[in-house]
Simulated scan of single mutants.
Amino acid sequence: MPVGLYDLTGRVALVTGGNKGLGKAMARGFAEAGADVVIASRHEDELRAALDEILAGTNQKGAYFVADMSVRGDADTLAKAALAKFGRVDILVNNAGMNAPQAIDAIDDATWDRVVEVNLSSVMAMTRALVPQMKERRWGRVVHVSSIMGQVSKERRNVYSATKAALIGMAKASALDLGPFGVTVNCVAPGPFLTDMPMSVLSDAEKQAFADRTALGRWGAPRELVGPVLMLCSEAGSYVTGQTLFVDGGYLAR
């Protein structure tokens, strides 16, 4: 049956930034597809409640760990904790990210370094830590959450666009490194989704402009990212690697 292509029974998925928004929605989708789930973020109070919601009504196991992706060593600590808890991680979704809008002639070094660490360097560190055991089993799925802002941009998105574009390049290279071992690496690039990050940095006029530019005339709900990610992380996407899947409601078509 075609539905079996999306079955993740027996798999373990780790989602950074899994306490809310897109990360929480993806983690819930993995649990519904049969995977055990690990989520991580900086906020323990949010993690506990989020994990309960992610696992509700499923028979899956889960765990959460507090990790700050702006601290390089936390990536290794998180990877080791997840492996100690479940013995394996089959699916890694590098979702943790941040945005700190600044014009090119106003960027301060501390902000640049923090956004690069969270959006890009932590992705390298998490992937580096977890792919060796995927290679040993000759099966794995790695998905970096990029953005349409890695393809286009707007004012004051210098560091954000730079990091999201870099993820696309890194996924291509990593796909070549890991393909011989049965591990795929892809990016998913969301467009306008109703999450805390864009809602906190955009004016009402900017929010409407994003909606108007999409073919569907609206923002996406986090749940609408689940299907594309499940495809990339299951047998349905076994021959897809080194790619970027734009899930943007037609934003880039205009």
Results as ranks from 00 to 15, higher is better:
residue 125 A to R: 15
residue 55 L to R: 00
residue 133 Q to R: 08
residue 238 S to C: 01
residue 4 G to H: 14
residue 50 A to C: 07
residue 184 T to C: 00
residue 54 I to T: 00
residue 208 Q to V: 09
residue 251 Y to S: 02
residue 22 L to R: 10
residue 96 A to Y: 06
residue 117 E to Q: 15
residue 43 H to P: 04
residue 120 L to Q: 13
residue 220 G to S: 05
residue 157 R to S: 15
residue 28 R to P: 00
residue 50 A to E: 09
residue 250 G to E: 06
residue 13 A to I: 08
residue 202 L to P: 00
residue 97 G to F: 12
residue 83 L to C: 11
residue 147 S to F: 13
residue 194 L to R: 11
residue 52 D to M: 08
residue 121 S to T: 15
residue 111 T to F: 07
residue 155 E to Q: 13
residue 97 G to E: 12
residue 152 V to K: 06
residue 137 R to P: 06
residue 162 A to G: 04
residue 193 F to R: 02
residue 42 R to M: 09
residue 47 L to Q: 01
residue 229 V to W: 12
residue 196 D to Y: 07
residue 86 F to V: 10
residue 173 A to I: 10
residue 73 G to I: 09
residue 197 M to L: 15
residue 86 F to A: 10
residue 224 E to T: 05
residue 168 I to F: 09
residue 90 D to W: 04
residue 167 L to V: 08
residue 157 R to L: 15
residue 216 L to T: 05
residue 78 L to Q: 09
residue 172 K to N: 04
residue 82 A to L: 09
residue 5 L to A: 10
residue 73 G to H: 13
residue 207 K to F: 12
residue 172 K to H: 11
residue 223 R to V: 14
residue 235 E to P: 05
residue 77 T to A: 15
residue 137 R to N: 05
residue 209 A to V: 01
residue 254 R to T: 09
residue 84 A to D: 15
residue 50 A to D: 07
residue 73 G to V: 08
residue 38 V to W: 02
residue 156 R to I: 01
residue 112 W to V: 06
residue 130 L to Q: 03
residue 177 D to R: 01
residue 134 M to A: 01
residue 87 G to D: 12
residue 151 Q to R: 08
residue 75 A to D: 05
residue 238 S to F: 01
residue 28 R to T: 13
residue 201 V to D: 10
residue 242 G to S: 13
residue 202 L to F: 06
residue 231 M to D: 05
residue 109 D to Y: 07
residue 235 E to I: 03
residue 111 T to K: 11
residue 161 S to D: 03
residue 95 N to F: 12
residue 254 R to S: 08
residue 251 Y to G: 02
residue 42 R to G: 09
residue 185 V to I: 06
residue 80 K to S: 15
residue 184 T to G: 01
residue 126 M to N: 15
residue 207 K to M: 15
residue 254 R to Y: 08
residue 203 S to Y: 04
residue 246 F to N: 14
residue 98 M to Y: 02
residue 7 D to G: 02
residue 87 G to E: 12
residue 94 N to W: 13
residue 77 T to W: 08
residue 47 L to E: 02
residue 200 S to Q: 09
residue 183 V to Y: 06
residue 103 A to L: 12
residue 116 V to C: 05
residue 18 G to D: 08
residue 23 G to W: 14
residue 133 Q to S: 13
residue 164 K to V: 02
residue 124 M to C: 08
residue 131 V to W: 10
residue 109 D to W: 08
residue 185 V to P: 04
residue 57 G to Y: 07
residue 68 D to K: 11
residue 206 E to N: 04
residue 227 G to C: 11
residue 99 N to D: 15
residue 211 A to P: 03
residue 32 E to S: 11
residue 75 A to I: 02
residue 165 A to V: 00
residue 187 C to H: 10
residue 174 S to K: 09
residue 71 V to Q: 14
residue 39 I to K: 02
residue 200 S to I: 01
residue 238 S to K: 04
residue 53 E to H: 01
residue 176 L to P: 02
residue 220 G to V: 03
residue 133 Q to V: 04
residue 56 A to Y: 12
residue 66 V to I: 12
residue 149 M to H: 14
residue 76 D to C: 00
residue 6 Y to F: 15
residue 224 E to R: 04
residue 122 S to K: 00
residue 121 S to K: 14
residue 128 R to F: 12
residue 217 G to H: 13
residue 152 V to D: 06
